[in-house]
Write a protein that binds this DNA or RNA. Structure first.
Length: 989
RNA sequence: GCCGGUGUGGCGGAAUUGGCAGACGCGACGGAUUCAAAAUCCGUUGGGGCUAAACACCCCGUGUGGGUUCGACUCCCACCACCGGCACCA
């Protein structure tokens, strides 16, 4: 009776399925135990691709499975579900090529993938499985869209509210409307000083025409239609995400030209949440690098808005000042020119007749190049003078206004004040066009010396006066902090102030003078939410004959995708023709909705793939609910986290990933880093809206996040640089390359042709994917699981080495042979009491493994189990304590083998329900311990002393050691350091 | 360019967070078992020196160079290499 995973594994998988071992009851369900603590552990659910999984994919799934099984054994109610994010391009592309409906492809791929996941022995609650493409699911995705559409963001409360309440506030006069459409709280008007150039004043809601009222309301919705610049690919007939456009402005698929064009698209007002999305990163327990990536992506900058009056009058309603945002208001006295983005609306207003031709040409050129192109071009500065001037409000200097494409319309006001002395970009530009460079911040002496260019002086004072006279003689801009100089007018002087103080002083002054005010800017843009695709969620929106937008009622949901056979996007050669999404060809019975005799057309775009993944973690709490997207009870139960107000973990060096999340939300969310700023940001945004509207109970969706590393693998290229299949490569002895990769002096070949070895992420494109089913067939799934966890730390990327698998396979074999007689099949267990040494080791192993579980240090936990098992090898019969402990420790990692042994040890299934073993602290102490002895920090000997020996006794024992005594001959002992239980160090001269 | 991460034997990695560097596994070498092989079991395995050999002993060693400390893979400073993110964001 040898260890035979091919027999054991399918049997226990069938057992778990029949017994519904991993089904998690909700509060109120049969079998629900309210006394237990709860834990929600979740994987980033996959897109069900046609090629199936390779061994890199399930690393995270196996890790969460181990965590979930461990938590169950520790007595938690564990929610551990799996589903599929199945809308998206690949199924649609496949449909275009083959005519097979995406629904069919998706169903097939999901079935295939579920089979693979089950063969990995993953203990999911499969009763909760769904796909984002299920009508029952996307009905609620549409419902959440309606929540967004029917809400506005109240800046005073810093939260979303129902849109009706905005109308009520305006109706009641609690809010007025500014001339730019901004909302104004009349109660807060006192002390308001209008910024120069803006027409002050407000209008009452009642003064607006009904049409104006409707448009105003629409402008405040969290989901809104707007004309935005998109990447439009005429040949493919669709907009593309930035990620789908290559650096040279062509489509990744098909290499067709792509250009920017304005299109009316659905947008989501994620920018309203910029501040909360940054601030609340402080309450979640995520890896710092991921938090940082989100912070950088959202891009908060503190600074000031400053108005620069134009020096010549402008016609009609046109503004007579240029507003800029700056993070360095302290350098305002050094602003020697201004730059507008080429698209800035003021350009056509202020350009003088003399400059018009040059400006027009520049604007046209800039327009033709996509934003992407502009960003990727060499940083050589270009620009044109408009002929117009503005006035620097602090010193009344008349400064020229240029246009240049290094200023982006999409950030701030699309215009900047240029301070060439203290900004690299402005410095380059000023140098190139001969604009003045005025120093207003004092650099350090070192900086002056390092950047003096060809100045002969080297005395600090001489350099300093040269810098004050003309900062352009130095070789770059000084962008660091320092004390201000040259910064005074009749009313205010910043001279001598530090950068931080100067920022505050000048901002106060600007505010008092009505010239500007402190401002916070974000890089984050609103989220473009329309796609010209078939395989996505339809919008619950109708368009009326006069262009009015009608949102459907909840009772109209779901808006199902119409049956179609042709999913191809419509190519168009006319860059100005409006795109016709595939749904434009849907049957009229779907497309047209008649209400009260009026013909409405459905919105023909669909939602982007991210929509479904923005809330799936909520649906898992209550996946079959037909009344709500999730019941309040289920949501409050599973998403509660620890919700403690306990102190943060300052000073804690290693975290416990398996405690309920302090902020609430999913307790442990595991996935790759690639979603750091996309899915993870979008989902947080949706969650916060649902939170504001009272639909969920926690401010954050994912309390704890863990990023697992990638599996890498060698790949091979032939002489032409073409990748060849890695499993066909052999070395000079004809051995498969995969078995000898790291042995020195190997030469590899493919079909007799020499190939070179490289290293990269495992996947289809490098032809180095390893199928988990193949490894399972050779070694068993338990071995594969164990190997993937044993390779190294979970968060690290690490190389796949087929050769190494035998190590853990031998371990499992040895466990089997230690406990089962291979001839008779009897268990080799004795009820005799274990030796004191073995007993202590059992307890020590429990301690080591348990500690490693908390830090997800599975590789080290496995090493501890191997050590314990190695001790059992020499025994004829293993004491029951050791056997049962080992089996239970192993259960989360190699669940099939553990189930089999647990049963053979005389227990009823399932070991998944067994208790995690406890260890006894008192069992861990040894009577005598060995201590290393150092002399002057170098190891010179070892002593064995009673564990409770005091410092003097230890020192005496150390001096008694022959080698130590030798070392000390002729030396005077200066100091003796005894570290309890660790070592003793004697300092002598 | 800016930001972040990682550097430990032939390979994957460990080190109770400032206390015996290299746990555990792979590979390699030697041996046992076997007609033989596979499988299994036992032993050795960071580099160098000394030694006929073993034991013992000595020196060096965690990317590089400095520093703090009785003591540094761990802390500080400077640098190098690789990986990742952002990239004219004012």
């Amino acid at each position: 009776m040898k260890y035979d995973p091919q027999d054991i594994e399918p049997r226990w998988q069938a057992h778990w399925a029949q017994q519904r071992t991993f089904a998690a009851p909700n509060p109120g369900d049969d079998g629900f135990d309210d006394a237990k603590p709860r834990f929600y552990v979740l994987d980033m659910f996959p897109y069900p691709s046609g090629v199936g999984l390779h061994v890199g994919h399930p690393v995270g799934y196996i890790a969460t499975d181990i965590a979930a099984r461990y938590q169950r054994m520790r007595g938690y109610n564990v929610l551990h579900p799996m589903g599929f994010d199945a809308f998206g391009l690949p199924a649609e592309q496949y449909a275009v090529e083959t005519g097979v409906h995406p629904r069919e492809t998706t169903r097939r791929n999901i079935d295939n993938m579920v089979g693979q996941l089950k063969r990995l022995g993953l203990g999911y609650d499969w009763d909760r499985r769904f796909s984002t493409t299920d009508t029952d699911y996307y009905k609620w995705t549409q419902w959440i869209f309606l929540q967004l559409y029917n809400s506005w963001f109240d800046p005073w409360r810093d939260a979303a509210r129902p849109i009706d309440e905005l109308e009520q506030l305006l109706e009641a006069g609690d809010l007025d409307v500014g001339f730019d459409g901004e909302l104004i709280d009349p109660g807060a008007m006192s002390g308001f000083e209008p910024i120069a150039g803006n027409a002050p004043g407000t209008r009452r809601w009642q003064e607006l025409a009904p049409d104006q009222q409707r448009r105003l309301i629409d402008e405040y919705r969290l989901a809104y239609l707007a004309e935005v610049d998109v990447n439009w690919c005429p040949a493919l007939g669709t907009v593309l995400a930035n990620e789908e456009v290559t650096a040279d402005g062509r489509s990744e698929r098909g290499n067709h030209p792509v250009h920017q064009r304005p299109l009316r698209q659905w947008m989501l007002r994620i920018t309203a949440y910029a501040e909360r999305l940054i601030d609340d990163l402080d309450i979640v327990d995520w890896p710092e690098p991921i938090k940082l990536m989100q912070r950088n992506w959202i891009g908060r900058s503190e600074g000031a808005h400053v108005e620069f009056p134009l020096d010549a009058p402008t016609p009609g309603d046109e503004p007579d000042a240029v507003g800029v945002f700056t993070t360095r208001p302290d350098t305002l006295f050094g602003a020697t020119y201004m730059v507008l983005a080429p698209e800035h609306p003021l350009v056509r207003v202020i350009t003088t007749a003399v400059q018009r031709q040059a400006v027009d040409r520049y604007v046209r050129d800039a327009d033709r190049r996509s934003e992407l192109e502009r960003q990727n071009e060499a940083r050589d500065k270009t620009g044109v003078f408009t002929g117009a001037h503005a006035v620097n409000p602090v010193n009344d200097d008349r400064i020229p206004i240029w246009i240049a494409d290094y200023v982006m319309m999409g950030y701030g006001t699309g215009a900047i004040m240029a301070v060439p002395a203290h900004d690299h970009r402005d410095f380059d530009f000023a140098r190139k066009f001969g604009l003045p460079i005025r120093a207003v911040v004092e650099p350090t002496d070192d900086w002056l010396r390092d950047h003096r260019a060809d100045l002969p002086e080297d005395a600090p004072d001489a350099l300093r006066s040269a810098y004050h006279a003309d900062a352009g003689r130095f070789d770059e801009a000084y962008t660091g902090p320092g004390r201000n100089v040259n910064s005074a007018n009749d009313e205010i002087s910043l001279d001598g102030e530090t950068t931080d103080d100067a920022k505050r002083s000048i901002t106060d002054w600007l505010h008092r003078k009505g010239l500007g005010e402190g401002q916070t800017q974000y890089k984050l843009r609103d989220w473009l939410f329309s796609r010209q695709r078939y395989w996505g969620e339809p919008f619950p929106i109708l368009h009326g004959p006069d262009g009015e937008i009608v949102a459907l009622d909840e009772s109209d949901l779901a808006v199902e995708l119409p049956e179609m056979t042709d999913f191809a996007p419509e190519p168009t050669d006319d860059p100005n023709a409006p795109p016709r999404p595939p749904l434009a060809r849907a049957p009229e019975s779907w497309r047209i909705v008649e209400r009260d005799g009026v013909r409405y057309e459905r919105e023909l775009n669909t939602m982007p793939q991210w929509a479904g993944s923005c809330w799936y973690y909520l649906r898992f709490c209550d996946p079959h609910n037909t009344e709500r997207f999730v019941s309040e009870q289920a949501e409050q139960y599973w998403m509660a986290g620890a919700m403690s107000n306990e102190d943060d973990d300052h000073g804690r060096t290693s975290r416990n990933w398996l405690e309920p999340a302090p902020s609430g939300g999913v307790d442990l969310y595991v996935g790759g880093v690639e979603h750091a700023v996309l899915h993870l940001l979008y989902a947080r945004f949706w969650h916060k809206v649902l939170y504001d509207l009272g639909h969920v109970s926690t401010p954050e969706p994912f309390g704890r996040l863990f990023n697992q590393g990638y599996i890498q693998a060698y790949c091979y290229r032939d002489a032409r640089g073409i990748v060849v299949p890695a499993d066909e490569v052999v070395d000079q002895d004809g051995k498969p390359a995969m078995d000898v990769q790291d042995q020195p002096n190997r030469r590899f070949s493919h079909n007799g042709q020499p190939v070179t070895q490289e290293y990269g992420k495992m996947g289809k494109s490098l032809k180095n994917a390893v199928n988990p089913d193949d490894i399972g067939a050779r070694f068993g799934t338990d071995t594969l699981r164990l190997y993937l966890m044993y390779m190294g730390p979970l968060e690290a990327s690490k190389p796949w080495n087929t050769r190494d698998i035998v190590g853990v396979h031998r371990f499992l074999n040895r466990v089997w042979r230690n406990l089962v007689d291979e001839d008779t099949g009897d268990t080799l267990v004795t009820d005799d009491h274990p030796s004191a040494d073995l007993e202590r080791n059992v307890h020590r192993t429990i301690q080591r493994v348990t500690r490693q579980m908390e830090s997800l240090g599975f590789n080290v936990a496995i090493a501890a189990m191997i050590e314990l098992n190695n001790e059992l090898v020499a025994m004829d019969r293993v004491p029951r304590l050791a056997a049962e402990t080992l089996v239970r420790l192993l259960a989360p990692f190699a669940p099939h083998l553990a189930e089999e042994l647990w049963q053979r040890l005389g227990h009823a299934p399932s070991v998944a329900d067994a208790d995690w073993p406890d260890y006894d602290e008192t069992m861990l102490v040894e009577e005598r311990i060995e201590l290393p002895v150092q002399v002057n920090g170098k190891l010179r000997g070892r002593i064995t002393v009673p564990a409770d020996a005091d410092d003097d006794a230890i020192e005496a024992a150390a001096r008694g050691d022959a080698k130590v005594a030798d070392e000390l001959v002729g030396k005077t002992v200066r100091k003796v350091i005894v570290v309890k239980g660790k070592l003793i160090n004697i300092v002598a001269q």
